[in-house]
Design a binder for these strands. Structure first.
Lengths: 343, 343
DNA sequence: AAGTATCTCCAAAGCGCTTTGAATGACTTT
DNA sequence: AAAGTCATTCAAAGCGCTTTGGAGATACTT
């Protein structure tokens, strides 16, 4: 069913039918109703490509997911972020296009996406420090919103980020207040900007209390259950093991819990664990009482907000870069307790 | 940069430039090289909408993710499936469009997607029994591949599925062979077809050995850690608790493990656990030795294959429906052992 | 030297929509 | 009664590409 056929069927011009359906005022209410009814009955929905070509807007947003040899897996938070963003898009009548790209060819892919014009804007995932994509997209004049931030990038750009610094400072302080002095950090990969920020705040919180950093207590790996288990197991077998762990994801924390139990220790008593919790739909942190003490910030909500931000930016291109910071809440579970007294 | 500008720049017609770039033979090699070089330098990439309009193909595949009130979360396997499919698409020069839709409006959305013609094919996720989408897409004449199958649908259609029946039969038999008689099933939601199949094979395996089904040992919930914990905790406190659990996902199994430990029991000795393992990137089942005994089948690989299947179907519309079944391997971890002797 | 292939290349139509600029008719206004 | 207004409607151009149906050179036959 095309506009042409529909208009012939109605004995009207394409112009009139198009205007009737798109809510223009130059068409009588009677005609509009007649057109709408026919469109409904004949299941007419305009060809998106033709419409896009005519209007110059794709009504689609691109999400580019970097995958690389060092970072092969698709981040588990991705599904929830997409779910949030997707719900915003569908309300606004936008589509979501996802491209996977390996790190090597990033620049080319972004250039192509922009040249091909099948998205009106882009959400940039997983910013690294000094992320080159920000300069590139700015130069290409493509609206975009970064999920996260990129340290050391000095041109203005729009972003939405969790306050990772504050969250990890609070988490570290919380452990310090409980008397812990040997606090391990199981961080994500530190070329990722958020991981870098987290380490910085962990480090500064310790130093503020005059505690020297111990590189043996700082790990930076992909955030998997296994890595949590392996790192924690190794650290727990040190001469002077950590009494507390600060981890970057629930999944890592689950691995840490396994290591603690394997070592015959009790979580929340012998060893404390505090984690960041992205509040994923399928991995809730307990029900009534949280399992892990955590800094919680919903990644799904972040997806919703990021999409809204981008749509606003597209609708209103003259407004400058927008920023939004999401505070994580510190929720207290059963995985933390006072530091055990040294024997 | 448009074709027109590029052709003017080269002093050639649009026809020739188009043909040169698309590899048609009616253009001299010398010209072709000149055109390609210029295209590269000027960063020309054809406008996808215009190209799509002219060729009638969108070069995009749609993935429709059902979200509903009963089933709100985005399935955790989704990310890995998408990663697999996406890598196939990008190799083939296809885009991936994702739509989230709530259950109520499914039919309308599918009709719209087809009418709007911005995808050449669709991957159907999460088929239920009697899934109405299969008939609809067939009627709308849109190529599609179902990830999973739909029992009770009798028209032919293309699908790719894990052999859930066989996997759960083997898993149940494995536990039976170890002497277990009270075996709990923590299944996914059973309006989902795969969950239905899993229960059927669990039930038939038990019955084949003359063991009556105990409804108190069969749960059907969203596959979260919490649900695993809650269901297992409850069952472990029964008068005659199960000696083994069969779970539908690693995440549920992790919850079961937590329940076992909370009950002061040891997994693999007092209570056995066997799970289906989708082999997710961020949730590996141990490293050298698997933690859980599991029926493993990579959902990422399924994504790759499903996408390939669909692309073949699109390239070659005359071939009838295609099927592909993926066998799960049974891997032995430390979570299973002989049934404890009754006191 | 004319006829025929073969190479290259091009003008223009068409994909399905939106949007501009104009036409039509009914209704007021002078 | 002529002119002006307003509400409707339409024909046609244009979005950027592919593709059809030639056309002009050049080389090859006879």
């Amino acid at each position: 069913m095309s506009l042409k056929k529909l208009s012939e069927h109605l004995n009207l011009s394409q112009t009139t039918v198009s205007r009737a359906l798109n809510g223009y005022p130059e068409v009588s209410e009677k005609t509009r109703e007649r057109v709408q009814k026919a469109a409904q009955e004949l299941n007419y929905s305009p060809n998106a490509r033709a419409k896009g070509l005519a209007t110059g807007r794709a009504h689609a947003i691109g999400h580019v997911i970097p995958v690389s040899t060092q970072h092969e897996m698709v981040n588990p938070v991705f599904g929830d972020f997409i779910a949030g963003a997707g719900s915003t898009y569908s309300k606004a009548g936008y589509e979501m296009m996802i491209s996977l790209v390996d790190d090597q060819q990033q620049e080319k892919l972004y250039r192509d996406i922009c040249a091909r014009r099948n998205v009106d804007g882009i959400i940039v995932h997983g910013p690294t420090m000094n992320d080159p994509r920000i300069g590139l997209l700015t130069e290409l004049n493509m609206p975009f919103v970064v999920h996260g931030r990129a340290s050391n990038v000095d041109i203005p750009y729009s972003w939405l980020d969790t306050n990772n610094s504050r969250a990890f400072r609070r988490a570290t302080d919380f452990l310090l207040d409980l008397g812990h002095r040997r606090i391990a950090l199981l961080n994500g990969l530190e070329f990722m900007d958020y991981a870098f920020r987290r380490r910085e705040s962990y480090a500064s919180a310790l130093q503020k209390r005059g505690i020297a950093l111990d590189p043996a207590l700082m790990q930076s790996t992909e955030m998997t259950e296994i890595n949590g288990f392996l790192s924690a197991s190794e650290m727990l077998s040190m001469d002077v093991p950590p009494t507390a762990f600060l981890t970057s994801s629930m999944i890592t924390a689950i691995g840490v819990r396994r290591a603690i139990q394997a070592a015959g220790l009790e979580m929340g008593k012998d060893v404390s664990v505090i984690t960041h919790d992205d509040d994923l739909g399928y991995l809730k942190n307990g029900h009534d009482v949280p399992i892990f003490t955590a800094t919680r910030s919903s990644v799904r909500a972040a997806g919703v907000r990021a999409a809204e931000l981008l749509l606003r930016l597209i609708a209103n291109p003259t407004t400058g870069p927008q920023h939004e910071i999401i505070e994580a809440e510190l929720i207290i579970g059963t995985s933390t307790g006072p530091a055990p007294q040294r024997p």
